[in-house]
Structure formats: C-alpha cells, structure tokens
C-alpha cells in the first residue's frame, strides 16, 4: 500500500511537473537568443487560456480552438517583444525586466475586466475518468498533458535542428556576433524566440486549464515553479527542464503528502536556493567559456 501511494503521488506530481517544464522551456527560448526572459510569461499562459475558452464559447470546435489559441499566444509573445524587450535590448539596458513585469500586470487587469475574476471550467473532449496502470490512477486528461508537452517541445527542437531558420536561431543563441556576420538578423531571431515562447505558453494554458480551471490567477503558482525549474535546470538545456520539472513535480507531491500540503511550495524554493548557491549555471547548464 505504501509503495502504491508513493507511486501514485509521484506520477500525479510528475505529470504536473511537465507543465512546469513546458513553461520553463519558454523561458529558455528567449533567454538563449536575447539573454532576456518575459517575467509576464504566466499572464501569457492565462490570457491564452481565456482566449481559447472564449473561442469554445463562440462554438469553435475543440480541435480548431487549439491552433487558434496557440496563434493568439504567438501574437502575445510578439507583442511583449515589441513593446517590452526590443528597445531595452537595443539600448543594452536591463529595462526589459521591469517592462515585462508591467506588461504582465496590464494583462492581468485586462483579464479581470474582460473575463472577470471567477475561476471557470474549461471543457474538453478528453475524458477525466481514471485509468489504472499497475494500481496507479491516471486520467486520459493527464496523459494528454504529457503528450502535448513532449510533442510541442519535440517539434520545436526538430525545428531548431532541421530547418535553416531553426539553425539560424541556434546560431544567434550560440554567438550573436558571428550569426550577424553570416547575415542572420538577431532582432528577427529574438522576435521569433518570443513568438515561440508565446506559443509554448499558450500550449501550457490549453493543456492545464481542463485540470486547474481558468482564472486570472491560474498561472501565478505555475510560473514560480517554472522559474525554479528553469534556474535549477539551467537556462540552456531543454532536456534538463524536463528532468527537473518531473523531479520537482514528484517531489512537491510527496512533500505535501508526508509533511502536509502547506509545505508544497517548499521543495521548489529550496531547490532554487541550492541551485543559485551551488550551481548558478544550473545542473544541466554549461559554463559559458568561449573558445578563441
């Protein structure tokens, strides 16, 4: 019984952890190209979820809503880049930190005014009835989260490795000056990275909403965890965020079982502190030494 409980808690937690990983991956995308991240990423998750819910309310079928919601995320990501990041980066200032936070707050108020402060259910055709695997209960909904996370991250990684545009993306991440000298526009690549991170945020919103419901504060807890995951894993390892995300999710879940749910947030914060103290580049991060 005890081992069954542990596996049930670990599996439930790990599936949630994949959502942290996906959002953390969004941080990585923009950090790799521009050394900046969107501190309002959580609001992107939430706004995309609300928008997708509105599409469903308008009668758009679920499978058409998904691309619609994702496109909206891309649009939001681009808007954040244009309004909050580009100028600051051009002036080589850290202004993007404050600007992205402010844009996030604006998005939050907008959501409260447009959609209200209620948590609302997000209908989905995917069943929430439990299936049993070796005594562990998992719902198809949770499995869909795992599939969605892996599919999107896999596609983006494939894009980065197999297409010219994706390779240009990697080139800017690796060496901005060298990439520029090859005729690659770093500005456009940064735009692309923000678009992609908006896409990732929207996906996270669509995947997690049927489980957690949609509300203005739906992502505030998620984003903190995602941030921990990104920092602990390092800001340049897609593989790392998945491993750390799963690990943190499972750990949280077990902590809340053994120590009480009040301690749920503790492992993420402790990991964050440990990572910053011991391995500032992250467990999977590379020290940035440039070979000359």
């Amino acid at each position: 019984m005890e081992s069954l409980i542990i596996s049930q808690m670990a599996v439930s937690g790990a599936l949630m952890g994949l959502v942290y990983a996906l959002i953390a991956y969004g941080f990585q995308l923009t950090f790799s190209t521009s050394k900046s991240i969107n501190f309002g990423q959580g609001e992107l998750v939430m706004l995309s979820a609300f928008f997708s819910l509105t599409l469903l309310d308008w009668g758009v079928p679920y499978w058409l809503m998904v691309p619609g919601g994702l496109l909206f995320g891309v649009f939001l990501g681009l808007a954040v880049e244009r309004a909050g990041v580009r100028l600051a980066l051009e002036q080589k200032s850290e202004g993007w930190i404050l600007l992205t936070i402010i844009i996030g707050l604006l998005g939050f108020s907008a959501a409260e005014n447009i959609w209200g402060r209620d948590d609302r259910p997000f209908p989905t055709p995917i069943s929430a009835d439990a299936l049993q695997f070796f005594g562990v209960n998992v719902t198809p909904l949770e499995i869909s989260v795992a599939i969605g996370v892996f599919a999107l991250m896999g596609l983006i990684e494939l894009f980065k490795r197999k297409t010219l545009l994706g390779k240009a993306f990697e080139a800017v991440s690796a060496d901005r000056d060298a990439a520029e000298l090859m005729g690659i526009s770093a500005t456009r690549t940064v735009m692309l990275s923000y678009g992609l991170s908006g896409l990732v945020a929207a996906m996270a919103g669509i995947l997690v909403s049927p489980i957690t419901t949609v509300g203005p504060t739906m992502a505030s807890a998620l984003i903190l965890k995602a941030f921990s995951v990104a920092v602990v894993a390092g800001l340049d390892s897609g593989f790392g965020v998945v491993v750390i995300g799963i690990f943190l999710g499972a750990l949280e879940s077990l902590t809340s079982f053994y120590l009480g749910s009040g301690w749920r947030e503790a492992p993420g914060l402790i990991l964050l502190i440990l990572a910053l103290a011991v391995r500032p580049n992250g467990v999977f991060g590379k020290a940035t030494i440039r070979k000359v």
Binding site: G13, M16, I211, A221, S261, G262, R264
Partner: peptide
C-alpha cells in the same frame, strides 16, 4: 484531518491520506 490552501488545484495528497 487535512488542510488545503486557497488556489490549490491538486488535492491528490489529501485525498490519498483519506483513502488510505
């Protein structure tokens, strides 16, 4: 006897304790 916080979305831990 289990506590939960406003905003918690995942109650698996509390429920598992009750169940077990």
């Amino acid at each position: 006897s289990e506590k939960f916080n406003i905003g918690d979305k995942d109650m698996t831990a509390q429920l598992l304790k009750a169940k077990s």
